[in-house]
Design a protein around this nucleic acid. Structure first.
Lengths: 259, 259
DNA sequence: CGGACGATTGAGGCCTCTCAAAGAAAGTGG
DNA sequence: CCACTTTCTTTGAGAGGCCTCAATCGTCCG
């Protein structure tokens, strides 16, 4: 029997001169519904508390607010507690290329470790909440908590293989396949977060989807319409229902009999 | 003044029952021309020796030989000492999607840490040589050599941002831009290895380039021809010379005045 | 209520793929 | 060492998918 952890309710110690910030709450990993996906996965009670001491605070990010932008100095990782983000790189000719959509339980900022500065920009797609993880402190903790280090490596590696999957998508699929693969991917990520695999809200615009998949907005719209007409999805604005997940999978794999 | 390191010439201690393997040479990081790009970067003499003890052996990989394939258990990372590799994922409909070309000084296998098994296949594009790095031993060493851990994180992070760059390429560039960006990228990687920025050999086929960039072989061939005709490159078979690197950069960025 | 933004649908054009054929290079076996 | 096969590369012609341009409609928010 362990004592209930109330640290989530405590205000973080304010530095001298700082205004009291009610949002600077200590993070409580043990009480966080994402701890099975996030860094604390596999940690025992004691190690989890040490991690909580490293996580400086939780922070609310409003819709469209920027979490970090290119050339910002890298010193934090961000664990998404709640909400959705997009990350994008500036495209030389003005536009932006979205490199990913992130949801609760995922880690932001790992791509900046190498250069020491951020290379892309992270923006909240809706009102969200992140845990700020000072990377220097995290590195110190790695020495004492090998399980945590292993989990961190796991998450970095998963990010690499995720992007490899995207490359596969972008490189050698038709627009239809890309869209189907995108929806199936969202579905599977919602499942592992305890949400429905078939009904969820799109947190991004059609334009953002198209940007991510390398398609024009109009193509995305047409694909939604055609999927709707053939009965594999039902979609109203952002509200989405996957009526025939197996069919979507088949389309994504290019094994669709109705292609 | 330090003693010359002769460990590269010593045969690794053979386990009881093992046949003597002349190729199982101890790796010598200090004598390796790639140590400024690879894991030992920033390590002092002592730490480098500890790393050498972890690196079990060097291994020669012949052209077309497979280093690892999907579902192989992950227990090693591979540092490329010499030569070139490609990594690819199996495409559901039979084909393969190349996710990257790797050269000396780069690390292979990091994408497998997450799943514990390899997800893609690594094949040598020419006779090559790698250092085998048992990951479990490396993890132990991380505890004692924080600099090494930091360098490892740096390399994983660079891999993430490299793939983000590729996504940007694949997602929102014309065929011409993709090719130019590809050549410029190769050029810059050869520079940091001490080779010419303008003259080098392509280690991959046109088909592999096309596969990587999401283009048909014929498109790749046509693009080489058109680049040659406009005088920005000279190419004969695999022999390549970048005659106008600034122009190539401009094409890649979409700011080419002759577009 | 009106403006801004996002989404949908249509028409036309271009880029890149596919199909096809032939030449060149590299590797193989006698 | 040479003929042969295989693989790689190049070039052409045609088709198709997706983009661009344009207009309309619905929704959200000030």
């Amino acid at each position: 029997m362990s004592m209930p952890n109330l640290s989530a309710l405590q205000v973080a110690p304010t530095a001298p001169g700082d205004a009291v910030n009610l949002q600077a709450l200590r993070a409580s990993c043990s009480a966080c519904s994402m701890h099975q996906l996030c860094l604390p996965m596999g940690l025992d009670q004691g190690d989890m508390q040490r991690l909580e001491q490293v996580i400086s605070r939780r922070r609310r990010i409003k819709r469209d607010e920027v979490l970090y932008r290119p050339n910002d100095k890298f010193d934090m990782l961000y664990a998404i507690r709640l909400g959705h983000f997009k990350t994008f790189q500036q495209n030389p000719n003005g536009g932006q290329q979205i490199t990913g959509f992130q949801m609760a339980g995922e880690l932001l900022g790992m791509d900046a470790i190498g250069a020491g500065v951020h290379l892309c920009q992270a923006v909240a797609l809706e009102d969200s909440e992140v845990c700020e993880i000072p990377f220097a402190s995290l590195e110190e903790l790695f020495r004492d908590v090998p399980v945590l280090l292993r989990q961190f490596h796991r998450m970095m590696s998963l990010e690499i293989s995720r992007e490899q999957r995207v490359m596969l998508t972008l490189g050698s699929m038709t627009a239809q396949q890309k869209m189907a693969a995108f929806l199936v991917n969202l579905s599977s990520r919602y499942v592992s977060r305890g949400y429905s695999s078939t009904r969820f809200q799109l947190r991004m615009t059609r334009e953002e989807i198209g940007n991510y998949l390398g398609l024009a907005v109009e193509s995305v719209s047409r694909l939604f319409s055609s999927f709707k007409k053939s009965g594999v999805v039902d979609v109203n604005h952002r509200e989405l229902e996957l009526l025939d997940l197996p069919a979507l999978r088949a389309i994504a794999l290019g094994t669709d009999p109705c292609a």
